[in-house]
């Protein structure tokens, strides 16, 4: 299979804590792959390790066939990886438009993608001059995803998009993610198994800093025992 991203047995330390103790994730091109696991399993750390924000000490990360571990974060990101962090990290002092513009990697990115972004998230158009501090949680999430779409990213790392959102909003968001996955590969961290199972094609389960199981989502949804065992909920 053609993997756009291939994480091979990475070990990551934060301070002196050995957080990731062997995580491997393979992401087929064009798919949505879900990272599943309990709270504190190391899903966020995996995403950050891919981006070099918490650089792994051991292991290999291949992106588009090139080794990227050890490179500086901004260099990794400029290879075409978009990041939607857990806490959204909207820039409070910047307006919505500036929040989008800052993600430009070359001039005209924003102008080019504007149309696409506003069809995905029509609400943002109305809010364009509001400053980030005044956005609601759902609006922040949309903006965070939109920001990752401004530059030409062929891989999106999305961390818990549904966290803390109302069911209606989650539905809207799922639709958006479904739509944008036509253009780029998505790695999705998701606590809400229902959401993950509807969106993702593949899954990887992380448990206590190790990747313990991977496969097709279809198979997992039928495997109630595994779900119960690793994720604690049916």
């Amino acid at each position: 299979m053609d993997y756009i991203l291939d994480v091979q047995d990475i070990h990551t330390f934060i301070g002196q804590y050995h957080i990731l103790q062997g995580v491997s994730v393979r992401v087929p091109r064009g798919s949505i792959t879900a990272l599943l696991g309990r709270n504190g399993a190391g899903k966020t750390t995996t995403l950050k390790s891919i981006l070099g924000l918490t650089p792994p000490r051991q292991g290999k990360i291949m992106f588009e066939g090139n080794e990227i571990q050890g490179m500086l974060s901004f260099n990794i990101a400029s290879l075409g990886i978009g990041f939607v962090p857990e806490n959204r990290s909207i820039f409070r002092d910047l307006s919505v438009e500036e929040n989008l513009k800052i993600a430009e990697r070359k001039k005209g990115d924003y102008a080019g993608k504007k149309g696409f972004i506003f069809t995905l998230f029509p609400d943002l158009k109305r809010l364009i001059n509001l400053s980030g501090i005044n956005l609601s949680g759902g609006q922040q999430q949309m903006l965070a995803i939109a920001r990752a779409l401004v530059a030409d990213n062929c891989l999106l790392l999305i961390d818990e998009p549904s966290e803390g959102l109302a069911p209606v909003l989650i539905e809207q968001l799922m639709k958006a993610i479904q739509q944008l996955s036509a253009y780029s590969t998505v790695v999705l961290v998701e606590q809400n198994f229902l959401v993950a199972s509807q969106l993702a094609e593949y899954y990887v389960i992380i448990e206590e800093g190790r990747s313990v199981k991977e496969g097709k989502m279809k198979d997992l949804t039928n495997d109630k025992a595994t779900i119960q065992h690793y994720l604690g909920a049916a």
Partner: peptide
């Protein structure tokens, strides 16, 4: 000033 890590994650 607010979030260095995120700026870096944008490729800057």
């Amino acid at each position: 000033v607010q979030d260095r890590e995120m700026v870096e994650a944008l490729g800057i």
